[in-house]
C-alpha cells in the first residue's frame, strides 16, 4: 500500500517537475522572441510545416466529427421532436470544444511529435551543441519559430475545422436526414454567439502553445541516442494531449 502511494507521489512530483522546467523554457522562449533579429524566414517555414501540411488531416477530422455529431444529436433530439436543434448543437460543440481540442490533438500527433523527434535527433547528434558553438542560440533559432508558428496556426486550423464540421453536420442533418433547412440554420444563427467562436480560438492558441512547447521541451532534453529520441517523441504526444485536455477544462471553467 505504502509502495503504491509512494509510486503515485513520485509520478505526480515528476509531472510537476516537468511542468516547472517547461515553464522556465517558456520564459526563455518569450525572452528570446523579444530580441532582434526577428527571424520571419524561420517563422514562415514553421507555419508551413505546422499549418499548411496539417490542413488535410484537420479537414478530415472536422468533417467526420461534424457528421457524427449531426447523426448522434439527430437520434437524441428526435425522441422529443427537437430535430431542428441539431444544427445549434453541432455548431456549439464544434466552435467551443471539438474544433479546438480535436485540431490541437491532431496537430500534436502530426507536428508536435515531429518537433520532439527533430530537435531530439539534433540533440543526440550534437547539432544543438554545434549551434551553441557557432554562437547561435538554439532557443531563438529552433524553439521560438516553432512556438510562435503554432500559436498563430492552430487557431487558423481550428476555424477550418469549425467550418468543415458545421458543413458536415448540415450535410447529414439537412441533406441525408431531411431536417428543415430554414429552421436548422435559423436556430444556429439564434443560439451561436460570436463569443463562442472567439473563446474557442483563444483555447486553440493556448493549445498551440502547449503542444509546441511540450514537443520542443521533450526534444531539447532528449538523452540516450535513437532510443531516447523515440521515447521523447512518444512522451511528447502523451504529455501534450493530457495537458491540452487539462487546460481545456480550466479554460472552459473560466471562460463560459
Amino acid at each position: 500500500m505504502l509502495k503504491a502511494i509512494n509510486a503515485v507521489g513520485e509520478g505526480v512530483a515528476g509531472y510537476l517537475r516537468e511542468m516547472g522546467r517547461m515553464f522556465l523554457l517558456l520564459l526563455n522562449t518569450i525572452r528570446w522572441s523579444l530580441y532582434p533579429p526577428f527571424r520571419f524566414d524561420l517563422l514562415f517555414q514553421q507555419m508551413e510545416r505546422v499549418g499548411v501540411k496539417s490542413i488535410l488531416v484537420v479537414v478530415l477530422t472536422g468533417a467526420f466529427t461534424g457528421m457524427v455529431m449531426g447523426l448522434q444529436t439527430f437520434y437524441a433530439t428526435r425522441k422529443f421532436g427537437a430535430e431542428t436543434m441539431v444544427g445549434v448543437t453541432v455548431a456549439l460543440a464544434m466552435t467551443r470544444e471539438l474544433g479546438p481540442v480535436l485540431t490541437s490533438i491532431m496537430v500534436t500527433g502530426r507536428a508536435g511529435s515531429a518537433m520532439a523527434a527533430e530537435i531530439g535527433t539534433m540533440r543526440v547528434t550534437e547539432q544543438i551543441d554545434a549551434l551553441f558553438a557557432m554562437a547561435v542560440n538554439p532557443i531563438k533559432y529552433l524553439i521560438v519559430p516553432r512556438v510562435m508558428a503554432s500559436i498563430v496556426v492552430v487557431p487558423i486550423l481550428t476555424i477550418i475545422a469549425d467550418f468543415v464540421g458545421i458543413v458536415g453536420g448540415y450535410f447529414v442533418g439537412v441533406i441525408i436526414l431531411r431536417i428543415n433547412a430554414g429552421a436548422y440554420v435559423a436556430n444556429m444563427e439564434k443560439y451561436v454567439d460570436l463569443d463562442d467562436i472567439y473563446n474557442g480560438l483563444i483555447k486553440a492558441a493556448v493549445f498551440g502553445l502547449i503542444l509546441s512547447l511540450v514537443g520542443c521541451y521533450k526534444g531539447f532534453t532528449t538523452t540516450g541516442g535513437a532510443e531516447g529520441v523515440g521515447k521523447a517523441t512518444t512522451q511528447s504526444v502523451v504529455l501534450a494531449a493530457v495537458t491540452i485536455l487539462m487546460a481545456d477544462y480550466i479554460l472552459t471553467a473560466v471562460m463560459f
Partner: peptide, 20 residues
C-alpha cells in the same frame, strides 16, 4: 560569450552537420 565563440571553429565527432 557569443563574441568569444565566434573566434572558434569546432569539428564535432560525427561532424554534427545540420541534416535538414
Amino acid at each position: 560569450l557569443n563574441e568569444m565563440r565566434k573566434k572558434f571553429g569546432m569539428l564535432f565527432q560525427e561532424a554534427a552537420l545540420f541534416d535538414s
